[in-house]
């Protein structure tokens, strides 16, 4: 009745606005990251999630390495699918909630450029309902490219656990990642994987002013345990990580 309307032409992607709501019930979100590929991020993310679950924490694991997912191979996940209920509810795997793009694409190759990666991140965070969790562990691809920047952008409460080996190649790139994470968000610390020499990298890491959580010795039995969690839990790798999680990691979060 005599009302005039005003309208605003916009082009707004609504997905980013619902992420906070989708993660409201999640107490801590941790990205397992590294500067280089092959340092064991996915193995540590998968194992960390299971160790936290075994301590009684409500835990989720989200594989954000869309082009090279591997947590399903490490854990031996088969024949699982998310439930569709006002979005997607991640299925339970060994007592934790587990989400991966592999549910949709299987082992088909998925070539993605940056914009595609950002779209998948937004889509999955916008429609996945995690419910109540103590920990959500994110396995992310290496480096300081799209996924790293997007999770920093969309998940302000994110904290990074950085994985490196003692190799100069891994350390140099880890340092770059640390600089970005320090500037933009917060870090739990750095963990050395596949240590081969008796002297680790602790002193160097500390000289960067970063918390050093510990070293996991190289364990040749890990390869044969891939796809079998029971075997994985018997490895020296698992025992070392378990110790670090309980003695160091949980004190820093």
């Amino acid at each position: 009745m005599g009302e005039e309307n005003s309208s605003e032409e916009i082009m707004m992607d609504p997905r980013a606005y619902i992420i906070e709501e989708r993660l409201r019930g999640v107490r801590r979100i941790i990205a397992v990251a590294g500067g280089k590929g092959g340092v064991g991020k996915s193995l540590i993310a998968s194992s960390l999630a299971l160790i936290l679950k075994d301590t009684g924490m409500r835990t989720g694991l989200f594989d954000l390495d869309f082009t090279s997912p591997s947590t399903h191979l490490i854990l031996g996940v088969r024949d699982l699918a998310p439930k569709e209920e006002k979005g997607l509810i991640p299925p339970d795997f060994l007592g934790m909630k587990y989400m991966t793009l592999v549910y949709f694409i299987g082992d088909s190759p998925l070539p993605l450029r940056g914009e595609g990666i950002s779209n998948v991140i937004l889509e999955l965070f916008a429609i996945t309902r995690w419910g109540e969790l103590d920990f959500l562990i994110l396995d992310i691809p290496p480096g300081i490219s799209d996924t790293t920047l997007d999770i920093i952008k969309y998940i302000p409460q994110i904290r990074f656990l950085i994985i490196t080996t003692g190799s100069i190649l891994a350390l140099t790139t880890a340092k770059k990642l640390i600089e970005i994470v320090r500037d933009e968000t917060s870090m739990i610390g750095i963990l050395e994987n596949m240590r081969r020499e008796s002297r680790g990298i602790e002193r160097r890491i500390k000289s960067w002013g970063v918390d050093f959580l510990g070293s996991i010795p190289f364990d040749k039995d890990v390869e044969n345990s891939l796809g079998n969690v029971q075997l994985l839990k018997k490895t020296e790798f698992w025992k070392a990580l378990n110790r670090i999680v309980k003695e160091k990691f949980l004190n820093r979060i």
Binding site: E4, S6, E8, I10, M11, M12, D13, R15
Partner: peptide, 12 residues
């Protein structure tokens, strides 16, 4: 691709 909010019309 996807869903976009294109226009919001307000009552005066």
């Amino acid at each position: 691709r996807g869903v976009w909010v294109k226009k919001i019309v307000l009552k005066k």
